[in-house]
Design a binder for these strands. Structure first.
Lengths: 140, 140
DNA sequence: TATTGTTATACTCTATAACTATA
DNA sequence: TATAGTTATAGAGTATAACAATA
C-alpha cells in the first residue's frame, strides 16, 4: 500500500524545494512568493501580464504582489513610453542585492538537499530533470 | 548568464508540481492546500501537531485548514478517548473518494510532465529522487 | 475592439501571541 | 509544568468581476 512511484517521489521533492523558498525568504523577511518574484526578476524585467503567466497567477493577484514588494522597496514599476498602458517591473538596487543573496541561499539549501551523490549520478539527474522541465541544459 | 544548474532545474520542477496541485484541486473545487491535505491523509489519519509538522505549518494554521476542509465535508475531527486533548483527522467517505481521485489525477499530470523518457532513465531517476527525499523505494 | 493593468470584494492561507483543557 | 489544540488578530495571497486607459 506504500506509494513508491516516481510521481510520488517528485511530488515529495517539490514539497522540499518549496519549503526552501519559505526558509530562505524568512532570512530576508520576505514571503515565499516575494522570494520567488525576486528570483524570477533576476532573469530580467517584464510586464505584469508576462509575470502573471510565468507565475501562473491572475493579473489582479500580481497587482497585489507587486504592490507589497514595491512597498518594501525591492521592486519598482516603470511606465513604458511606447505603450503607456504597460508597466515594467524592475528590481531596485536593494532588491537586486536581496535577490542575488536569496538566489544564492536557495541554491545552497537545495544543494544540501541533494546531498552527496556521485558526480555521474548528479550529471544524469541534472540532464533528466532539465528534460522534464523543458529547457534542457545546453550541451557544454 | 543563463542558469542551468541542477538546483535551478529542481526549483522549476517544484513550480510545475505546485501548479499540478492547483489544477487538480480546481477540478474538485478544492484549494491547492486542501488537495495536498487530502492526499496526505491517504497515508493515514494523524493528529494536528503531526500534520502541521508534515506540512511545515504552525498548529494554528492547521486549525483553519482543517476547519475549512471539515466545513466542506471532506475531513472529520475524531476525539481520542485515551488522550482527550488530541484530535485525529480522518477523511470522510466523500473525502476518501475525492482524495483517491485527486491523487490519481496528480499522478497522471506528473506522469505527463515526465513524458516519454526511456525506461532505463526512468528507473535511474526514480532511484535518485528517492535517495534525495529520504525514503528510498524498497528494492523490488 | 482588444489589451494592459487596476480596483472592489470576498475568500483562503499563514503566523504570532494568548488562551483552554488535559496530561 | 508540558503538551494538544484553539481563538483572536493581522496581514499576505488569490480569484472573479467590473473598470479605466491606451492601443
Amino acid at each position: 500500500m506504500e506509494d513508491t512511484t516516481l510521481a510520488t517521489a517528485l511530488v515529495r521533492l517539490a514539497q522540499l524545494v518549496s519549503r526552501v523558498y519559505a526558509e530562505v525568504g524568512k532570512e530576508f523577511e520576505l514571503t515565499p512568493q516575494q522570494t520567488q518574484l525576486l528570483c524570477m526578476l533576476l532573469g530580467g524585467s517584464t510586464g505584469m501580464t508576462d509575470m502573471s503567466r510565468a507565475l501562473g497567477l491572475e493579473r489582479s493577484s500580481m497587482t497585489g504582489l507587486v504592490d507589497r514588494a514595491e512597498r518594501r522597496g525591492v521592486v519598482a514599476r516603470v511606465r513604458d513610453q511606447r505603450d503607456r498602458r504597460a508597466a515594467c517591473i524592475e528590481l531596485t538596487e536593494q532588491g537586486k542585492e536581496i535577490a542575488y543573496a536569496a538566489h544564492r541561499k536557495v541554491t545552497e539549501h537545495v544543494e544540501k538537499l541533494i546531498g552527496d551523490i556521485a558526480p555521474d549520478d548528479r550529471e544524469r539527474l541534472e540532464h533528466l530533470v532539465w528534460t522534464i522541465v523543458g529547457t534542457p541544459a545546453p550541451r557544454s
